[in-house]
Design a binder for these strands. Structure first.
Lengths: 231, 231
DNA sequence: TTTACGCATTGATATTTATCAATCATATCA
DNA sequence: TGATATGATTGATAAATATCAATGCGTAAA
């Protein structure tokens, strides 16, 4: 166990992910060997929709947006990934293509794990497969919630929901401060950039939030929750 | 093998599903024992969102709509399931609740397989877990496509897409005939019933389809494809 | 400094889509 | 047979949302 700790130099990467706890020391070393760490600057593409899925990526530091490239250059952000998270996609085990694009929003450090190594691991370690199944299903639940969010709520509800998501699941600051570009907020809520700006302005005028450039402070979380629920 | 065939009376159920091919005879019998078959009339609920997920269901005959119950009685149909298909949901291995509702659209026969039996099977048979992972990921891909479909296309594109889906994946008739209620078409495309009616009427006026009650004949598939792509 | 660029913002306008209300058709039931 | 329910249809209207065009603003490059 001690040996395990010392043999890998990547403190955050594998040990912090519950999904890897079922691995034997040997298996752990196997993927630790196959691992390679890369740094990305804001705006850089980590993997791109349509390309072959050669690796699964673990976000170690920074912030990554994961989105679908849709019709006529419109993107739909599926989620923002904070450390320590696996980001991959449904191409795993199916067509082995990336069905999503991942782009760094902040200075980001990520570990790449060879997809074949991981595939073999699933064949060998049933607990790992079990955990992965569980993990994927959790994301499917989130997708279903997002379906309702995007198709059954008006713009106000969607923006409020997105702001709460950013606060609760991404930035998690006690000062209720989040940072997001207008276009990203629009891509997160499936609306035009101009619309997202306008809704934001309305919320500001009602003193529910305050805005300073890309930084937004959420003053009245209860109101946002209410707006989000109302639709 | 022969023994396998005779020991189960449910010809369609387990043998026709590729996902069960990795089971040993013993495992096969185990879930075959735990299986129980039920008939449903049109409109009857097979499982209901929010309830405990006690079984996984296999559709043997008929047609089932699987949907999310959303906000203020609006539903979003995720897919229509024809035999022979497993229908379940992401509650499996997570919170063991149904996150979807399944309702029979036609006279339907379905097999219920105890969820614990299935969970154990995954722990025991790694190939099964592997196949299941693959199967789930395929559905996630479909979900992503649906995201784009619903959030980035106009009503015409969505209706055209839905009609093509019904033709290609549900009814699969050589005479291009499909059957669907207006409300279901609306729930499939995230729009109001009235809107779905109007778009349908436009398509009819352009002689792209013809409509007779709940039966729709798709005359010009190319046009529908074009409309679907255009958005 | 100037230029250029990427974003944010705003107003005007057009388009899309939902809602409401009424009517019609059809099937089922007592 | 009428009574009643369910779903389809239509038109009028309102509400939601996108688009387009112009402007501002701050930062990074020349």
């Amino acid at each position: 166990m001690d040996e395990k700790k010392t043999s890998k130099h990547c403190g955050a990467c594998l040990t912090k992910l519950p999904i890897f706890t079922s691995l034997t020391d040997e298996q752990f070393e196997l993927i630790n060997e196959a691992r390679c760490r890369v740094k990305f600057r804001p705006g850089e593409v980590i993997f791109k929709q349509g390309t072959a899925m050669t690796h699964i990526v673990i976000v170690n530091e920074g912030l990554v947006k994961i989105y679908i490239e849709g019709i006529s250059n419109r993107n739909l952000i599926i989620r923002l990934a904070r450390p320590v998270t696996i980001i991959g996609g449904p191409g795993f085990l199916t067509d082995f293509k990336n069905h999503l694009t991942a782009v760094a929003l902040e200075e980001t450090s990520a570990c790449f794990i060879d997809i074949n190594t991981l595939t073999n691991l699933i064949k060998v370690n049933k607990d790992f497969a079990f955990d992965l199944l569980k993990w994927i299903n959790e994301h499917v639940v989130e997708n279903y919630i997002k379906f309702v969010e995007l198709t059954q709520k008006g713009m106000h509800g969607r923006i409020a929901g997105a702001l709460l998501y950013l606060h609760e699941s991404v930035f998690m600051n006690s000062n209720n401060k989040i940072t997001i570009k207008r276009q990203d907020l629009a891509d997160l809520t499936a609306m035009s950039k101009e619309s997202s700006i306008r809704i934001l302005k309305e919320l500001k005028d009602e003193n529910i939030i305050s805005v300073d450039g890309n930084t937004i402070i959420l003053h009245k979380l209860e109101n946002l929750t209410q707006i989000s629920l109302r639709g």
